[in-house]
Write a protein that binds this DNA or RNA. Sequence first.
DNA 1: ACCTTTCCGTTGGAATTCCAACCGATATTT
DNA 2: AAATATCGGTTGGAATTCCAACGGAAAGGT
Lengths: 217, 217
Amino acid sequence: MQQFYPVLLKSTLFRQITANNLAPLLAAAQPMIKTFTANERIWQAGEQAASFGLVGAGTVQILKEDAQGNRTIVATVSEAGIFGEAYAYASTGPLPVSVDASTNTTVLFFEPKRLLNLAHLLQGEQLLSNLLQILARKSLLLNQKVEILSQRKIADKVLTFLQLEAKRQTRKPMLLPYNRQEMADFLGVERSALSAALSSMKKAGLIDYRKNEFTLF
Amino acid sequence: MQQFYPVLLKSTLFRQITANNLAPLLAAAQPMIKTFTANERIWQAGEQAASFGLVGAGTVQILKEDAQGNRTIVATVSEAGIFGEAYAYASTGPLPVSVDASTNTTVLFFEPKRLLNLAHLLQGEQLLSNLLQILARKSLLLNQKVEILSQRKIADKVLTFLQLEAKRQTRKPMLLPYNRQEMADFLGVERSALSAALSSMKKAGLIDYRKNEFTLF
DNA sequence: ACCTTTCCGTTGGAATTCCAACCGATATTT
DNA sequence: AAATATCGGTTGGAATTCCAACGGAAAGGT
């Protein structure tokens, strides 16, 4: 277990927790540690998710499989990231997604209820505060994504997206963490249509860009 | 304060809390009670949201105002509903939305931090569990909305929407809480286009419907 | 019963996006 | 340096959606 202390300390779940207080918290939380080989299935859609995972080593992928068996990668979670926390605390029905190990992976599984009993420990409240913050921020991010996807025209999606991005970056021009294809996927449009919209917006003087560096006028 | 006990007991925040334990919890939580007249502004976009609200009486509206001053109603919160909890616990920047009282309204404002200190009280952990569940379920709902909005064609949006709705209703046919215009807004499409898509899907034998009663084949 | 309003389906042309294909520029590999 | 792969812009026709307008049915008010 000690081997994961550095990873845990840099996770959002244990943010602000001091190394001294980590061991007692973990002793009470009693995460179950499991290892998976590359491409092994961690969770199967349809199961009940009774716990949530923290990636101690490696990388996992959250994927959605539709009725025809098409796989869509919903998210990639790497070391120190957590997954399944919303399903664990919502405790509402079976999982709508599956989780696969994309590399050899170690996952620490936490029981949602157990974390509620930690408040009396040193920094136990900090842990709960972190958990609330994680869920709250996820809601805000999804809210923003809904706002973007609700726009009917590609140009409006782009503007909404860049305005939101401008609020979280001070850097000018902004550096987006996406290439064109990924940006198009995020906005829910065709890559070629996005390219066309971008160059038309540049011509109109609304924005400027080069690769993934964007400026909003 | 006692006057709000019945409302509080039926709120999701105090779900499962017994009447006996309510008073001590409230004494520690120390919500600030404020009244507003119809159409009065409760929160102004741009402010920092240091607390979240529980509607003790009346109804409030969450609205987004764009640069041109156009107002969009994001949500309506009535008695026993809560608002601003995600912003309060995310503690990330100013509010992107405003909140107005649509009727004469009483709101109980809770300090996010104070609720974390309640764990040692009777059912204090239940309260925290409720809070986590509220945030978690909001994330799941938004996730589903993203899934719907990510569909490129109206027919696919409708199918995704109905499939998700079918999971939470046992009733057949399903009874949707929307009229056509509201359904179109939720799916992010034009009402007339939705109507056209629906009748074409009915003709194709994919669905059946009458008013807001829908069946998925 | 009559009038008014709301809701919902339909229609047709305009606008937008999709989709497949192609091409040049840049990066990577051998 | 040559060959290969990746990335991003462009293009044109097909498909889809928007948009405004109309009309009938149902609901609500007087």
